[in-house]
Simulated assay, not measured.
Amino acid sequence: MTRTRLRQAKTDRQPIAMLTAYDAGFARVAAAAGVDAFLVGDSLGMVVQGQRDTLAVTVEDVAYHAAMVRRGVGEALVVADMPFLSDATVERALDAAGVLMGEGGADMVKLEGGAEKAGIVRALTDSGVPVCGHVGLLPQRVRKLGGYRVQGREAADARRILEDAQALVAAGIDLLVVECVPSELGRALAEAVDVPVIGIGAGADTDGQVLVMHDMLGLTEKPPRFVRDFLADGGSIHGAFAAFVEAVRARRFPTAEESF
């Protein structure tokens, strides 16, 4: 799965199955089960390091885990998160992207934010760095938000998220993640932009789905509403990953009950 094939998948309406991964072993099994792309998320702070949120994760942390995932998945597409404030300035963002792609072996970096990040995105893409945007719920702003809440319920908020997505696309992103928004907004985003839109808690009508691996394996004590325990369905780790891929491609995940 390359950037070109991601866009073709959107054109062909073939849903994209994406998972987070943090080490070579699980990543290898997920790749063998047919997962299209991998996100080395700063969610590792919570599910691997035991932090209360993602803010303590460093560029070096993500690069370390990305390098392991790269060894596990071979040539599969690997996206690495830009940790909290690593993209606060153009200079910091370029330095972080250099580490994530050079030492970590990532194919693309992901940053959180809307139109205010367009200048950073443009500087990265002008330097040859493929970028994935992230709108909707922004976990790196959880302390400012006061918790993990669905975004875009009000018309003005939904319009702002759409405008943020369009600004990021104009700045040069190749992929967009949208998190925790109503299904109608997820569908509107996928229709409004020409890059693939990957949803997490954004309904079934985005161009693909991503879940945190620990969540979909039933390892999270209080999983979000949009998570399904695929290990219970699949019977084994490989079976869980394969069940996730099949459900995404058949648009049987998420259901209305797993959406907002």
Rank of each mutant, 00 (worst) to 15 (best):
L44E: 02
G25F: 15
F38Q: 00
M46F: 01
A31M: 07
L39E: 03
Y22I: 07
I16C: 05
A17F: 09
A31S: 14
D36R: 13
R28L: 11
V48R: 05
Q14F: 02
T11Y: 08
A37G: 10
V48F: 01
Y22L: 05
A33N: 07
S43F: 10
Q14C: 13
D12L: 14
F26E: 04
R28G: 09
P15R: 08
R28I: 01
D12W: 09
A37C: 14
A30N: 08
T20M: 06
A31C: 15
F38N: 08
D36E: 15
A32P: 02
A21L: 04
M46H: 07
D42R: 05
A31Q: 14
D23L: 03
R13V: 08
G34I: 04
Q51Y: 15
D36P: 13
D42N: 04
T20K: 00
M18D: 03
F26R: 06
V35E: 06
M18R: 01
D36L: 12
T20D: 06
A24M: 12
K10E: 08
M18H: 05
I16Q: 01
A27H: 00
V35A: 07
V29R: 12
M18Q: 11
G50L: 09
V47R: 00
G34D: 08
T11V: 13
T11D: 02
G45R: 00
Y22E: 00
D42Y: 06
D42Q: 10
S43M: 12
F26G: 03
V47K: 03
V35W: 01
A21S: 11
R13I: 02
V48T: 06
A24H: 09
R13L: 03
A24P: 04
I16E: 01
F38W: 11
M46T: 15
A21I: 07
M18T: 05
R28Y: 00
F38L: 11
Q51V: 02
V48I: 15
L39V: 15
A31N: 12
D42M: 09
M46E: 12
V40F: 03
A21P: 02
Q14Y: 05
G25S: 13
A27L: 11
Q49Y: 09
T20C: 09
L44G: 00
T20A: 06
D12R: 09
I16N: 02
F26Q: 05
A33E: 09
T11M: 10
A32H: 15
L19E: 12
L19H: 02
A30Y: 05
Y22N: 06
V40A: 08
V29F: 10
Q51S: 13
Q14I: 15
P15T: 15
M46R: 13
F38G: 04
V48Q: 04
S43Y: 06
A30V: 14
I16A: 01
A31E: 13
A24N: 10
L39G: 02
L39Q: 10
A24S: 15
L19C: 12
K10A: 00
V40T: 10
Y22Q: 04
L39W: 05
V35D: 01
F26C: 09
Q14G: 11
